[in-house]
Design a protein around this nucleic acid. Structure first.
Lengths: 143, 143
DNA sequence: CGATCCGTACTCGAAGCGATGACGGTTAGA
DNA sequence: TCTAACCGTCATCGCTTCGAGTACGGATCG
């Protein structure tokens, strides 16, 4: 029970923050050094972000990656969608096909998962990339 | 990218729904048949629920499992806590120790994760076990 | 006393994930 | 034009998690 092992969202947020603070394009080897991984993995994650229109890339000797959006107007929900799409956030299991109760419950769980995903993205949308890049006061979470 | 592989929450909800609709104690082999897994896995998941006080168990020839709470007053957030505790829901990665920006971003991500977890539990609390069990027909025990 | 079931430890196979190497395409600069 | 640097992608490897399955002891009731 060590929680999720997929760290691509954290890596993606890390990369977006680094890129939004840079003027010139950054190369994947340099980014990999800061994130603590390897260039190939960085390119894979950034590839998803590019598909979502969040970053642009250019090959060549002076190539690298740049942000394509306004960091202050881009919520983390867009990063989540770019990385995870609409995959389930809760785990889903396959109930016994012959058990009517199991089928019913599973359908309800899928619907619940959609709802939880919406709540998760709503919360992520409240934080922008610029919020993490600048040293802002910690998130307000009084309740 | 096939989403989370941990299905214990779904199994736990499934089990709680079945137990809340039963009068007599149910044995793990019977439950396993409905959930679509094996008795050992059922006992492991139910063990966590028992630690959280959601169910009770009794060994012996007429033993089995029973709910220990009111299904109509028990939100799914309690099931989530029983299974996952306060583990991170977003993935976390280890930033490079020498990168100050990385350390700061990681700290912000941990804080964000706590907030997202709170939002997730708040959503789960809006659904009770009875909400799922209301439309569930009686369990058909496999021979 | 024996049948049934819980409790737990152990092993096994499958799948996800990240690391790594390799190779071709593309671009800027010498 | 030629070379170096970087992107894009594929294949592979090792690690970890997860669930399935087996086994054995303890507890309970007929």
């Amino acid at each position: 029970m060590a929680g999720p092992t997929n760290t691509q969202f954290a890596v993606a947020v890390h990369l977006m923050t680094l890129l939004s603070a840079a003027d010139a394009p950054l190369a994947s080897p340099a980014l990999a050094g800061s994130v603590g991984t390897n260039p190939v993995h960085v390119r894979r994650v950034l590839g998803r972000l590019r598909e979502a229109g969040l970053v642009t890339s250019r090959p060549g000797v002076a190539g690298g990656w740049q942000v394509a959006v306004d960091p202050a107007a881009t919520g983390l929900d867009r990063v989540w969608r770019a990385v995870h799409g609409d995959e389930p956030v809760l785990g889903v299991h396959d109930a016994h096909p012959d058990c009517a109760a199991g089928q019913r419950i599973q359908a309800d769980l899928v619907a619940l998962d959609r709802d939880v995903l919406a709540a998760l993205e709503e919360r992520l949308a409240a934080t922008t990339i610029a919020d993490l890049g600048a040293r802002v006061p910690p998130l307000v979470l009084p309740s």
